[in-house]
Nucleic acid binder design. Structure first.
Length: 733
DNA sequence: CAAGAGCCTG
DNA sequence: CAGGCTCTTG
């Protein structure tokens, strides 16, 4: 076919279209393998013979073994000969030591000789270090001494090499930190030829094994468990304290109202007024608190909100009472005992309130600064200005108090979240899995200022777990499961098509978090404990910004994440929804190779960052994969069915091939697949057919030619896909 | 070095 | 479909 030859002309300027990636990597990848080996070996042994010399010295100086070994390990952690001086060296090794004393750095010279010709004959190195007797002999012969029989040399070398390899493998396994484990030599080329699969496979295997050492994982788990226990205990204590405080508050309130009523029973107007103002104040407080933090309906926050409101009530009442009293005293000059008593009592109450509050706050602060090392100075030491509650105290004293309490409230609310994140998430094997889930919109104006989100918020707030009266219920019930919270938060960003239905809301297992959160999860989980400082999203709550940064860790670049805030627009959402996936699938009918710019244009309702971009790209990559697999499958099938000419190969809407594709990209079959896609599919099928018939599929990269053809066949995606609501428009028209 | 394609695996 | 890997390219 002429297409295969004209593919070189393919240029795609908007974007790199690397369709020709099909590097030989599956079978008989001798060149790749050789290259890799050369690379590895030279990386292992940058100094060549210098290091060999050092190694040979090591073999004879037992005293400095470990030091030199360390050096060597540092420099070339998988260099075989560095393993020689390890304790536990076998008799073979001892024999070899002696032998090497006579022969000089026999083995190392062998390595060097192997390296010297590594450019073209890297395999020679492997031949020297493997256990093949012939190759060993071949390598040894130039250095073997007449005093030793050839057999001895062979045997010694053979056994030595085996022992050495065994040890090296052990050590390498232990040295899981080392980033470049490259001990492949001698295993793959026993026959002098590479196993078709082994180079890549085994290399990859090695790389994958390096990730998180099991020891580390275990200790990490232990740590996490211990911390969990600790937090549980802290939680209990805190809960206890809060309940105490609650009781105290009620008692104080009752006392206060008794005094208040007795004092002002003669003055109903004032009393009513005060109550009105109190109520409105309380209402304001609640409203404000609600908008202050969307977590406020979760129990800890809710509880504290209530406490805060109560305190305000007390204070407002005290204030009103005082004002009233001042008026009275001005009018009547009556130095009544009641007033003096009330004053005193009010003061006492205030002091009690404040001391209690400060205790609680202190304990909370302590707890969180203790439990989270990353939050040592998130908020300065907090002191309630008790002394300020003088008789002639002014209003601003109350205000400052309120502000401070407000501040505490924020801190307290935001941090339990953090704590719960740690507690509950740490149950799973991968702690970071759910951490990003706590990515939430930053507080303040959210619920109030974004009407479009109201519905989703309410769905969150009406969750069975948070729907209780809050104040009277146990203060620290199990909060919303973290993944669920995350989902809700994500959903609240405008994803109206949330797959979470109310009935399942309480069971984390029922959540389909994959798409919305994997991006974050992935990043974070692959960067364990990689907490970077982050600029707080909201200047007024440093604590929250910081804890958010701890939680969010990173997803692509943090700036992008920081930009994702309620302020950046209502319709922009940070995650890709199932609808986006559906849209992408439909777009695949038009374009198999969309550029990232195109994706940005067509997914304008998504806040793009690296994560999102690569996720979208990955989607299309997966689509292509499926597409080409189907093509190959049907091409082979038709060949087996005796089709001999491409003319017989057509793709219509009745074709099985089309049905398979349609089932994948348009499952509901509610989209009319463009005719062009059928043509492209037919061309692709024929390409595969021809290639297979021509026997090109023996070439491991035989598909690349087809890819190059197909990528030219992209057509324009209709404008309607640029609309965020295109699905409705497309499917319901 | 980052982006991105493709391959393989789960 | 996502993750991890290799590899190429600008």
């Amino acid at each position: 076919m002429p297409d295969h030859d004209s593919i070189a002309l393919l240029t795609r300027h908007t974007k790199r279209r690397r369709v020709d990636i099909g590097v030989k990597r599956t079978v008989g990848t001798s060149t790749v393998f050789t290259k890799a080996k050369v690379k590895l070996f030279s990386a292992m042994n940058p100094h060549g013979s210098d290091q060999d010399i050092e190694c040979s010295v090591v073999q004879h100086t037992d005293g400095d073994k470990s030091n030199v070994l360390r050096k060597l390990l540092k420099r070339a952690n998988s260099y075989e000969d560095a393993m020689m001086p390890f304790p536990g060296a076998t008799i073979i090794s001892q024999l070899l030591k002696n032998n090497a004393t006579k022969n000089g750095s026999l083995e190392l010279n062998l390595q060097a000789s192997g390296l010297s010709s590594a450019g073209s004959e890297a395999n020679q190195e492997d031949a020297c270090s493997n256990s093949s007797r012939e190759s060993a002999q071949e390598c040894l012969s130039p250095f073997s001494r007449p005093s030793m029989s050839q057999f001895d040399v062979d045997r010694l070398c053979d056994e030595h090499l085996r022992a050495k390899r065994a040890r090296v493998e052990n050590i390498i396994r232990g040295m899981s930190h080392s980033p470049t484990v490259a001990l492949r030599g001698g295993e793959n080329d026993r026959d002098g030829m590479q196993q078709p699969v082994s180079p890549r496979e085994s290399y990859r295997e090695n790389k994958r094994k390096q990730k998180l050492p099991q020891q580390q994982q275990q200790s990490f788990q232990q740590l996490v468990t211990a911390r969990k226990e600790q937090k549980r205990e802290e939680r209990r204590q805190l809960k206890q304290q809060l309940e105490d405080m609650q009781k105290q508050l009620r008692q104080l309130q009752e006392k206060f109202y008794q005094i208040y009523d007795s004092t002002d029973s003669e003055n109903d107007e004032d009393g009513n007024m005060s109550e009105d103002s109190m109520q409105s104040e309380t209402a304001d407080t609640r409203a404000h608190d609600r908008s202050d933090n969307e977590m406020s309906d979760l129990d800890p926050g809710h509880f504290l909100d209530r406490a805060r409101a109560l305190i305000r009530e007390q204070e407002m009442a005290a204030e009103n009472e005082k004002l009233k009293r001042d008026g009275h005293s001005r009018k009547s000059q009556g130095p009544t005992n009641l007033h003096a008593e009330g004053k005193q009592l009010a003061e006492t109450l205030k002091q009690q309130l404040n001391s209690t509050m400060s205790q609680v706050v202190d304990s909370v602060v302590k707890m969180f600064s203790k439990s989270s090392h990353q939050l040592p100075q998130v908020f300065p030491p907090i002191q309630i200005p008790q002394a300020r509650f003088a008789v002639n105290g002014e209003n601003h004293n109350f205000h400052t108090t309120n502000q401070r309490l407000q501040c505490f409230g924020d801190v307290i609310i935001s941090n339990p979240l953090n704590t719960f994140a740690n507690m509950h998430v740490s149950n799973s094997s991968d702690q970071t899995e759910a951490l990003p889930l706590v990515v939430r919109k930053n507080s303040s104006e959210q619920s109030a200022s974004t009407p479009s989100m109201g519905g989703h918020h309410s769905s969150l707030h009406q969750s069975p777990l948070s729907a209780g009266p809050g104040f009277s219920s146990p203060a620290f019930r199990h909060p919303l499961p973290l993944p669920l919270m995350a989902y809700s938060f994500q959903s609240s960003l405008g994803n109206a098509s949330s797959t979470v239905s109310g009935k399942d809301r309480s069971s984390p297992e029922s959540l389909d978090l994959t798409r919305e959160t994997t991006c974050l999860r992935t990043k974070v989980s692959s960067h364990h404990m990689n907490h970077r400082p982050c600029s707080p999203m909201h200047p007024s709550s440093t604590a929250e910004g910081l804890s958010l940064s701890l939680i969010k860790s990173e997803c692509g670049d943090l700036q992008d994440m920081a930009d994702i805030s309620p302020y950046s627009g209502n319709t922009i959402q940070e995650g890709l929804s199932p609808n986006h996936l559906k849209k992408a699938k439909l777009m695949f009918f038009y374009t198999r190779y969309p550029s990232s710019n195109m994706l940005k244009m067509f997914f304008s309702d998504v806040k793009f960052n690296r994560c999102i971009t690569s996720q979208l790209i990955k989607w299309f990559s997966n689509f292509r994969e499926f597409y080409y697999i189907q093509m190959e499958k049907f091409a082979r099938q038709s060949i087996n069915d005796g089709v001999t000419s491409t003319e017989e190969l057509t793709v219509s809407r009745d074709s099985e091939l089309f049905r398979a594709l349609n089932m994948h990209y348009n499952k509901a079959n509610d989209f009319e697949v463009p005719e062009r896609f059928l043509e492209v599919a037919q061309i692709t099928l024929r390409e595969f057919f021809n290639a297979i018939v021509a026997g090109k599929d023996v070439d491991p990269s035989w598909k690349k030619a087809i890819y190059k053809v197909i990528c030219k066949l992209d057509s324009e995606v209709p404008e309607v896909f640029k609309s965020p609501n295109c699905l409705q428009e497309l499917l319901h028209e």
